[in-house]
Design a protein around this nucleic acid. Structure first.
Lengths: 215, 215
DNA sequence: CGTCGATTTGAAGTGGATCAAATGGTGTGG
DNA sequence: CCACACCATTTGATCCACTTCAAATCGACG
């Protein structure tokens, strides 16, 4: 747990913080292929928690092996680095969304981001994907209340921009949703993604001690 | 400009995004010693702009020299890496602040963060520091309006938590301000800061082509 | 002295929070 | 196979933190 890096193999996880008053902020979502920072090599403590969303498979890569991989396989270092840069870009875009977009655009924006990120790793099918996130979690990620998150989802539904049933989200017209969100995918830097990220097998290749996690 | 890294030597800068509707979000502040990401080595385009706040001195380190330094001087790599980790932690904390704190706590929190970060690099004196930021910029950084940023500053002033005159901010009782902000400095990971970061000279040592920038 | 940007203050409007309660879905035990 | 328990979703009503608009004041500077 203290040393090394975790990789999401299947399912979703997220980082979060709990404030003194008990409220929660979800910082970002970790999708298959995403990795934790190399925190422990340099920092004393982590400043946030991680929780899984629905059934999730996680691999742990221990510190020594990781270091060996970084030096032995340049593509590992590149994948890690690209991952860190994209993660940071996503955080910046989230700040922008929470700071300057209204609740409606925030929800739409997150749904677009999820689609593009999942598509990169082959986790979308046709026009839909699995989103194992409750409305309370959605609200906590976007800085709005659970109730209002529900109302925004309903509005998107009424406007035929999304169809949601049982954790499956369908986006009949992605361009329309992107327009509603003022979504510009460039911040995701998808075209710069190393092949290792696209290759779902790569994560498994790194896997040493897979861990399953329940809800 | 395209390749390499920029280091702030003196003064302040910030990253920002402009939304389609013209509103601006300031993403984070760059203080002396802070560096830009190694973007260009991996990514095609940058997803945000950078602007200076007041008179600022910036050094550019070109790509080849940087790579040589990383391999030749481990402390350069460590400083870069620590910088990246702290930058990310700051972004996460900003998300938390904008998403879940009220405007009053946000302002107080940012002022505390600035104090701790500036103190690390020796840019504070006694109980005050220079904050070359307009109230409009403060609002854009915290996701509130210029007018409300002003009211929150005034409230902090009325409560004797800050004294501000001419870009100099005085914090007579830091603990009281931290309490108002529910500020917990752990996310800054100050104790993990490499010596190179504390050493103001280190930035100058890296300097190759210093650039001055006006307001 | 005039100009222009930054700060300050007032008044009115609203996006989203909060509170409360109903509804729906799912797994579980009898 | 039903009934309860528990959680997620949904909806209504009210409230308020913050926005927006407008205008006055205050510097700093040529």
């Amino acid at each position: 747990m203290p040393n090394g890096v975790f990789v999401v193999i299947a399912g979703h996880a997220c980082r979060y913080k709990i404030l003194p008053d008990g409220s929660r902020q979800i910082l970002d979502f970790m999708l298959p292929g995403d990795k934790t920072e190399l925190h422990s090599l340099l920092l004393k403590a982590t400043d946030h928690g991680i929780l899984t969303l629905g059934p999730t498979t996680i691999a742990r890569i221990d510190r020594d092996r990781l270091i060996a991989d970084i030096f032995g396989h340049p593509q590992v270092a590149v994948a890690l680095w690209w991952n860190a840069l994209q993660r940071e870009a996503i955080l910046r875009e989230r700040i922008t969304a929470i700071g300057r977009r209204d609740a409606y655009a925030r929800v739409a924006h997150l749904l677009c981001e999820m689609f593009e990120r999942l598509r990169l790793v082959g986790e979308t099918a046709d026009h839909h994907y699995t989103l194992p996130v409750t409305q309370a979690e959605l609200g906590d990620a976007l800085g709005i209340s659970e109730v209002y998150a529900n109302r925004m989802l309903r509005r998107l539904h009424d406007e035929k921009l999304i169809v949601s049933e049982r954790r499956i989200l369908r986006i009949p017209n992605l361009d329309a949703l992107k327009a509603a969100a003022a979504f510009d995918a460039r911040y995701l830097h998808l075209e710069g993604a190393p092949q290792a990220v696209r290759d779902a097998v790569s994560a498994r290749r790194l896997m040493r001690s897979p861990v399953r996690s329940g809800t």
